[in-house]
Nucleic acid binder design. Structure first.
Lengths: 121, 121
DNA sequence: AAAATAAATGAATATATGTTCATATGTACA
DNA sequence: TGTACATATGAACATATATTCATTTATTTT
């Protein structure tokens, strides 16, 4: 009987079976980790981080965000869609203009946590 | 004189000049945002998030991490290098075996913040 | 010194992702 | 109803990235 029997096949020899078993118990829910990685992935882009940082200051429309960063309106729209899908931003329409803002305070906390790590912005 | 003169060229018309100017002041340091995005990008991968979650529980060697996730030793090594470069993990060597652990408590906070957003893991 | 083992690294490949361009949609106003 | 403008969307392209395979490096043991 092989030491690796409880785990998926892998070219490695397990060295500390006790540690691996203990840790394995705590990370059972793969789906949740997928979601967590997806969340961080959404924040892991310069354009999107900048958009979020801007929205931390003020609600803004697509045009103004584009102008602020000197970027294509389409590029901003695409990124806003990704932020929207991740429920990081929400929007409201007023005539032709669509205003975006942060969806909740978790976002602020999350960004602040990140800033703490890279130090002062 | 064009409204956009203070900003890089962009196909858009700025709508709320006051808002854009106000926000622009607060996001002057582009480099820091780049670092912030890089940090989130590093966390934005399923394998790396799982490694970090494992290391939240216990220091582990490369072999054991590989066995835990049933993944190639090389794949894990590559990912650990990325985590190392981002100063999210540190390591110590003991003979042939290299043990990895989290670099500091910011990491824990950051992951906890993320978990809060995607709800219970 | 040679063999064995844990980990790291480089190259290759397949996949994912961001931006641009062109165009469509939605709204206001003449 | 037609024009103008703000935004959204689809396709294309270029770039970035994760994993695998093959190999190398570092360390221990015989």
């Amino acid at each position: 009987m092989n030491k690796n029997d409880d785990f998926e096949s892998c070219s490695c020899t397990m060295i500390h079976e006790d540690v691996v078993k203990k840790v394995k118990k705590t990370i059972s829910d793969e789906d949740k980790f997928y979601e967590l990685a997806e969340l961080f992935k959404v924040l892991g882009d310069l354009t999107r981080v900048k958009i979020i940082k801007a929205l931390l200051e003020s609600e803004m429309c697509v045009c103004d965000i584009s102008a602020l960063f000197g970027m294509n309106q389409s590029a901003i729209s695409h990124q806003l869609r990704i932020l929207k899908q991740a429920r990081l931003v929400k929007f409201r329409r007023e005539g032709k203009v669509v205003y975006y803002s942060l969806d909740d305070d978790h976002v602020r906390q999350l960004v602040d946590c990140g800033i703490m790590h890279v130090r002062e912005i």
